[in-house]
């Protein structure tokens, strides 16, 4: 069992102490870094944008060695990712965590690249089309978390690269690019 779906797990995933929050500082520091890398790798390859601390997240338990991360450990590892700006807590209770394997700025750059590559410099699109339209198929934007996409678009709007407007349907917004 060194795979989780099509994700290849490292060997140390079967090392029981990996699942116990280590009390000694140096060891703990290394453990946190290892978890941080593994979570980000996994989320990126599996397009996971949201981790619920209390929900079943495949990485947080290993049935092969019968070990599960404690609540404290999960929060510690996710907080470490938040501390590096690679994730954000969505609530004060630290129950839901938004994972940003690309930072918002990086996502904004990806959108601009996408616009240029598809000749959409002066076009109008809906937000939903960016996530699931034919142009975005097979790109990193396919299936992007809506919260993250909106924040990247707002960042571009502030820079004058586009304008957001309310569309005809109540649940969608339009984007007018002006790159």
């Amino acid at each position: 069992m060194h795979k989780l779906g099509d994700f290849k797990l490292p060997q140390f995933f079967n090392y029981p102490p990996y699942f116990t929050l280590q009390p000694v500082r140096d060891t703990r520091e290394k453990q946190i870094q290892l978890w941080k890398e593994l979570i980000l790798d996994y989320c990126k390859s599996q397009k996971v944008f949201l981790i619920g601390v209390e929900e079943d997240f495949p990485l947080f338990s290993n049935s092969a060695i019968d070990r599960t991360l404690s609540h404290e450990a999960r929060e510690t590892f996710l907080s470490a990712i938040v501390g590096e700006g690679r994730a954000e807590w969505l609530d004060k209770g630290h129950r839901k965590c938004l994972i940003l394997w690309h930072r918002i700025q990086d996502w904004a750059d990806i959108i601009l690249k996408f616009v240029r590559e598809n000749g959409l410099e002066d076009s109008v699109m809906t937000v939903e089309e960016i996530r699931s339209g034919t142009e975005s198929l097979g790109t990193e934007l396919e299936g992007i978390d809506r919260t993250i996409l909106m924040r990247a678009l707002k960042l571009l709007e502030n820079k004058g690269k586009l304008a957001l407007f309310k569309g005809t349907s109540a649940d969608d917004e339009g984007v007018k690019f002006s790159v």
Binding site: P17, T20, T27
Partner: peptide, 26 residues
């Protein structure tokens, strides 16, 4: 050493953490 807390109790393992590579987890 490093520790492993499980329902079976506290066990100590040889500390392998320093040997794990951060840049290439595999």
């Amino acid at each position: 050493l490093c520790r492993d807390m499980s329902p079976d109790g506290l066990r100590f393992y040889f500390n392998l953490f320093p040997e794990f590579d951060l840049t290439n987890l595999h």
